[in-house]
Design a protein around this nucleic acid. Structure first.
Length: 325
DNA sequence: CAGGCTGCCCGCCAAA
DNA sequence: TCTTTGGCGGGCAGCC
């Protein structure tokens, strides 16, 4: 998302009573917190009440002095957090019209958790891939049969429409949007400031049995992952990683999936692409050299995986960040 | 870009 | 008996 020169991107949080407090605060924490001192570009975040003032949270607190509905007409990104009304409740038609209108002019439309029902009610998910909290996927599929539901991922992008799963996946999606806007380096700074892991793949399973890196969990697995990210340029196989973790390959693979929601090779490829993103953002090293230091045997292997995971070629990616720098 | 080769992934099952 | 482990093999993704 490119900001119009001179003003930071406008993020409108379109909330409906009774709104979930956690999800309401996530966009303000990720986008609205001033981190200029660490080199993070700022956003302009506004709260818009979709169901009229006062906006009421699920715990009964009232929020007043929200921004006017017309904010949606200027917003670069509109985020709809989860809300607590029955799933078949439809917001006012004029609010849905504003959403459709924003979508038509190219604004980025985002939902967290049950906020997906608002996007669906506006028809923005028809024929699109989407997700929501795993408890609601069946309901949404039944109410809006034209939506292609993906029930087991953290977040999904389809064109300019992004939907995320329950509660904490909102953070993953917001960080991903920061990454899309300003690159992995900036997203990592934000993640570090918020003291959360910088990246969980959107396709990662919702049913993760334990966080990827935990101080009281599987130490040898966490240590092995940390080590591998610091040695991406070397060759790794499931067998070699398992040996380092002092486990049989079969047990290592099993624990790996339980802890990360993905497989060793897919995780490794993801880490390599992230590292390539950082190098493209911060250096002028050739793509061939980047491929080598990321552990890809050839530049074409890097190009293939980079394109598949980011949607753009390494060269185009670099140009985007060189222009805005 | 086709096709073969290698290694990954995961269901299955027996052993601990 | 119940749970965890780890070896095996088929299908297939990734690489050359």
């Amino acid at each position: 998302m490119t900001a119009i020169a001179g003003r930071p991107p406008l993020v409108a949080v379109l909330a409906f009573s009774p709104v979930t407090m956690f999800e309401l605060s996530v966009p303000f924490e990720v986008f609205g917190t001033d981190r200029i001192d660490m080199g993070v570009p700022s956003y302009d975040v506004r709260l818009v009440a979709g169901s009229g003032e006062p906006l009421v949270t699920r715990f009964g607190f009232q929020l007043t002095h929200t921004a006017p509905m017309s904010t949606l007409r200027r917003a670069d990104t509109i985020i709809v957090p989860g809300w607590g009304l029955p799933r078949d409740t439809r917001p006012d038609e004029h609010v849905l019209d504003e959403l459709r209108r924003a979508h038509r002019r190219g604004a980025r439309i985002v939902s967290f958790c049950s906020g997906a029902f608002v996007l669906a009610a506006a028809g923005l998910l028809d024929g699109r891939c989407a997700t929501t909290h795993w408890m609601y996927t069946d309901d949404l599929a039944r109410l809006y049969p034209d939506v292609e539901m993906h029930g087991s991922v953290l977040y999904v992008q389809d064109g300019n429409v992004w939907t995320s799963a329950g509660t904490a996946a909102a953070i993953d999606l917001c960080l991903h949007l920061v990454r899309a806007d300003h690159g992995a380096e900036v997203a990592n700074i934000v993640a570090r400031r918020m003291v959360i892991p910088p990246h969980r793949e959107g396709g990662q399973a919702q049913y993760v049995e334990s966080p990827m890196v935990t101080s009281c969990g599987d130490e040898s697995l966490a240590a092995t992952l940390t080590w591998a990210t610091a040695h991406l340029d070397e060759d790794h196989t499931v067998e070699s990683l398992a040996r380092r973790a002092r486990q049989s390959p079969r047990t290592f693979a099993r624990r790996f999936r339980a802890a990360t929601g993905t497989t060793p090779l897919q995780w490794l490829l993801g880490q390599r692409v992230i590292h390539a993103q950082r190098m493209l953002e911060t250096t002028d090293v050739s793509v061939e050299q980047i491929a080598g230091s990321c552990g890809f045997s050839t530049a074409s292997a890097l190009r293939e995986h980079f394109l598949r995971r980011t949607g753009v070629s390494p060269q185009a990616y670099r140009q985007t960040f060189r222009q805005s720098a």
